[in-house]
C-alpha cells in the first residue's frame, strides 16, 4: 500500500510540474529537439565530469523538455569543439561547456577563424582552481622543497598536463620562468590521466584541478604544495597560496556554458535561465564546495566583459611564453 501511495504522489507531482511548466513558459522559446551539448575536453577530466553533472542535474530536476546530448570534442586543445560550434547548422540547439582554451586556442590558431566574442554568453558556472601536486613518496612537504628538488633535477623533472599551450602549460611555463626551473612538460589528453600518472609515479608533478586529484588526495597518494589562488582554499586550509610566497601570480579556469555563434536572443535567454537553475540547484552547489570551485554565476554583458579581460590576460601570457607573436 505504501508503494502505491508513493507512486500516486509521484504521479501527481510530475503532473503538477508538467502543468506549471506549460503555464509558465507559454510563448517563450523552447528547444524543439535534443540539444547538442559540446564538451571542449576529453573524457574524465574536470570539464567532462562537470558537463555530465550539469546534464544529469537538468535531467534530475526535469529542467528542460528536451535532453542535452553531451559530445566530447577534445581535439587540438578545444579547436575541434570551437570549429564544431562555429559551424553548427542549428546554433539555437548547440551549446558548449568551455575552459580557458576558449581564449587561448583562437589566439594561437588565428587560421581557425574563431572570434570568441561571437559566442552567446549563456552563463559562467564556476571558476576552477589549480594546485601543484606531487606524490607523497617524493617526500616533498613544502613549495620551497619542491623548488630546490626541481631545480636540482633540471629537465629530469617531469610535469604532466592537459594539452599543449593549455592552462597547465601556462602555469608550468610560469613556474619555469619565475623560479629558474627547466621542468619538462608532457601534454596528455585529459586531467584524469595526468592525475593517474602522478599517483602511479610515472611523472613527478602536476597542476591538476581539485576535482581531478581529489580521490588520490583523500587516499594520501597525492600531496598539494601550493595553490594558484588569491585566498587559501576552504578544502585545503593548510596549503599556502603562491601569493603568500611573494608572487603576484594567480590563475583560474572558467567553467562557462556558451551558445554557438548566431544563437537567437530568445534561445540565449532560455539557456541562461536553464543554467541559472542548474547553478542554484543543491547538487551543483554541493559539487562546487566539495570540489573546491570558486566564482559566482555570471551571464550576458557581464560575462562578455569578463571574457574580454581574460582574453587580454592570456594574450599577454602567451606572448611572454613565446607561444604567439
Amino acid at each position: 500500500m505504501k508503494h502505491t501511495k508513493r507512486v500516486f504522489f509521484t504521479l501527481v507531482g510530475i503532473a503538477a510540474i508538467a502543468f506549471s511548466g506549460f503555464a509558465g513558459i507559454a510563448n517563450a522559446w523552447e528547444p524543439t529537439k535534443p540539444v547538442n551539448f559540446i564538451i571542449m575536453a576529453g573524457k574524465g577530466g574536470g570539464a567532462d565530469k562537470m558537463a555530465r553533472l550539469m546534464q544529469a542535474i537538468v535531467e534530475k530536476e526535469n529542467l528542460s523538455n528536451r535532453p542535452l546530448i553531451p559530445t566530447n570534442k577534445s581535439g587540438g586543445s578545444g579547436a575541434e569543439a570551437l570549429v564544431a560550434a562555429n559551424t553548427a547548422s542549428d546554433p539555437d540547439h548547440t551549446i558548449m561547456v568551455t575552459l580557458n582554451s576558449f581564449y587561448t586556442t583562437p589566439l594561437r590558431q588565428p587560421g581557425l577563424g574563431i572570434d570568441v566574442m561571437t559566442f552567446a554568453p549563456v552563463g559562467r558556472m564556476a571558476e576552477d582552481t589549480f594546485l601543484l601536486w606531487v606524490h607523497k613518496d617524493s617526500g616533498l612537504k613544502t613549495f620551497e622543497e619542491f623548488l630546490a628538488k626541481a631545480k636540482a633535477e633540471g629537465s629530469g623533472w617531469v610535469m604532466g598536463g592537459t594539452g599543449k599551450d593549455s592552462e597547465d602549460n601556462i602555469i608550468t611555463d610560469h613556474l619555469n620562468g619565475a623560479y629558474g626551473l627547466s621542468m619538462k612538460y608532457i601534454p596528455y589528453k585529459g586531467g584524469g590521466a595526468v592525475a593517474k600518472d602522478v599517483a602511479g609515479k610515472q611523472i613527478h608533478s602536476s597542476v591538476n584541478n581539485p576535482s581531478e586529484a581529489l580521490g588520490f588526495y583523500e587516499s594520501g597518494d597525492m600531496v598539494p604544495l601550493v595553490a594558484f589562488t588569491n585566498e587559501r582554499l576552504p578544502l585545503f586550509p593548510d596549503v599556502p597560496t603562491l601569493k603568500e610566497k611573494g608572487s603576484e601570480f594567480t590563475y583560474y579556469m572558467q567553467r562557462s556554458v556558451v551558445g554557438a555563434p548566431g544563437m537567437s536572443p530568445d534561445a540565449e535567454a532560455y539557456f541562461s535561465d536553464l543554467f541559472t537553475k542548474v547553478y542554484n540547484s543543491a547538487d551543483w552547489q554541493s559539487y562546487k564546495s566539495k570540489k573546491s570551485l570558486m566564482g559566482d554565476f555570471m551571464s550576458g554583458g557581464e560575462l562578455v566583459a569578463y571574457w574580454n579581460v581574460q582574453r587580454d590576460l592570456h594574450k599577454v601570457i602567451l606572448k611572454a611564453s613565446g607561444a604567439i607573436k
Binding site: K49, R52, Q55, F216, E218, S219, D221
Partner: peptide, 21 residues
C-alpha cells in the same frame, strides 16, 4: 571507455566519490 565515463557521472550525482577509498 565512453560508457564508463557516463557511469562515472552517474556515480558522482548519486553522491559517491569514486577513487582509491
Amino acid at each position: 571507455s565512453p560508457t564508463t565515463a557516463v557511469l562515472l557521472a552517474g556515480m558522482v550525482i548519486w553522491g559517491l566519490q569514486p577513487g582509491p577509498l
